[in-house]
Simulated scan of single mutants.
Amino acid sequence: MGRVNAFILSRTGSEVAMIPEVANHLINSGGKRLRPMLTLATAALSDYRGDGDVKLASAVEFMHTATLLHDDVVDGSEMRRGKLAARMLWGNEASVLVGDFLLGQAFKMMVEVGSLEALRILSEAASVIAEGEVMQLAAAKNTATTEDEYLAVVRGKTAELFAAACEVGPVIAGRPREEQAAARSYGMNLGIAFQLVDDALDYGGREAKLGKKVGDDFREGKITLPVVLAYRRGTAEERAFWKRTLENGEAEDSDLSEAMRLLTKHGAIDDTIARARHYGAIARDALGIFRGRAEAEALVDVVEFVTSRAH
């Protein structure tokens, strides 16, 4: 990870002064670097020798950072990782354009590795992530969103990059197809678990851990799994509350406590965490063919780390 961090910093340079300023504001803001860590871990699990894992891990982090810059513009977010979002400091236009620069750099890194298959996996992921973002726009503020529809958004928007980050490790090591598929399955299900825990934490977490305000999803009118569950289980009067606050955007400051009450009443937060643990268990089982290897045990620990954030 030390080599990855150094490589990331070396690739944010540009003669256009605003680009490294905006990029480094987010890159140096204390993110977990979970996705590039997964690329390094699955490459190590596959006995990979070379520096392609460092370049692909860096490309994955650049892709992730680019989506965060774009996300904050789309969502109108004010905070990111406990600091002012880049858009609040440099504006929406700069955030979008620097995100595009980082995507361009990510693809340059992929080409340098020289694996057409790794390039295919990550470029396909970039396309699927964008589709997930557009799907989320369509589902946003729509209280009729079903759990299946919401999970389709999560698979595209969040889990696809986890899956790709894990799959490219065994790919560049030339491992058998079943190992590549197992690594991808692990990443996909870990990514779903990660997002569902995030959804639960937005209503039940602590701000210091979240890096944003509790209830930001509610204030931004986002339909997430806890809301989907509470809406489905609610009375006509309760559904009217969700429609007013989220669909119509007429939420008042006092409405957040009522939203929390309804989520608690219908067990929506606890059930969201239970769903996350279910996907975490699938991720663990996907590692079965690697049993006995130290890297596989470490990846099992990652599942525990992701799901235990909900405590």
Results as ranks from 00 to 15, higher is better:
Asn92Glu: 06
Arg309Ser: 11
Ile27Trp: 10
Ile27Gly: 01
Lys83Ile: 11
Arg87Phe: 02
Phe162Val: 13
Asn189Thr: 11
Ala200Tyr: 08
Leu40Thr: 09
Ala165Tyr: 01
Leu196Ala: 03
Arg291Asn: 12
Thr158Met: 00
Ser185Asp: 09
Gln195Leu: 00
Leu229Asp: 04
Leu45Pro: 04
Ala268Trp: 08
Ile289Cys: 10
Leu137Gly: 14
Ala44Leu: 09
Glu238Lys: 07
Ala57Gln: 11
Gly13Ala: 15
Tyr48Ile: 05
Val73Ala: 08
Lys265Glu: 13
Ala57Ser: 14
Ala240Asp: 15
Asp75Gln: 07
Arg309Ile: 07
Asp148Gly: 14
Ala193His: 01
Ala163Lys: 09
Val73Tyr: 02
Lys32Val: 13
Arg177His: 12
Arg206Pro: 05
Ala23Ser: 11
Arg277Ser: 05
Glu133Tyr: 03
Asp271Val: 04
Glu247Trp: 04
Leu34Ser: 10
Gly280Pro: 03
Lys212Asn: 12
Ala193Thr: 13
Ala182Leu: 03
Thr307Pro: 03
Leu9Gln: 13
Phe218Met: 04
Asp71Asn: 12
Trp242Asn: 12
Arg309Asp: 02
Tyr203Pro: 02
Ala193Asn: 02
Ala281Gly: 10
Ala17Leu: 05
Leu97Arg: 04
Val153Leu: 02
Glu304His: 09
Ala173Tyr: 02
Gly169Val: 02
Leu103His: 06
Leu9Asn: 07
Val303Ser: 01
Leu263Thr: 13
Pro226Thr: 11
Thr272Leu: 01
Gly169Thr: 08
Glu78Asp: 14
Ala230Cys: 12
Gly267Trp: 00
Thr145Trp: 01
Val227Tyr: 03
Leu56Phe: 01
Leu201Gln: 06
Arg233Trp: 00
Val171Met: 02
Arg81Met: 09
Leu229Tyr: 06
Ser127Phe: 00
Tyr231Phe: 15
Glu78Pro: 04
Ile172Glu: 01
Ala208Leu: 10
Lys213Gln: 13
Ser77Asn: 08
Lys83Cys: 11
Leu151Trp: 00
Ala66Ile: 06
Glu149Pro: 11
Gly52Ser: 05
Asp100Ala: 09
Ala59Asp: 02
Met88Phe: 01
Phe194Asp: 10
Ser185Phe: 05
Leu69Asn: 09
Gly205Glu: 01
Glu160Arg: 15
Gly234Met: 06
Glu297Asn: 06
Ala165His: 01
Asp100Pro: 07
Ala240Gly: 14
Asp72Val: 07
Gly132Asn: 08
Glu147Tyr: 00
Met260Trp: 03
Phe7Asp: 09
Glu237Asn: 11
Leu69Arg: 08
Leu287Ala: 11
Trp242Gly: 13
Ala118Ser: 11
Lys265Gln: 11
Phe305Trp: 08
Leu103Pro: 05
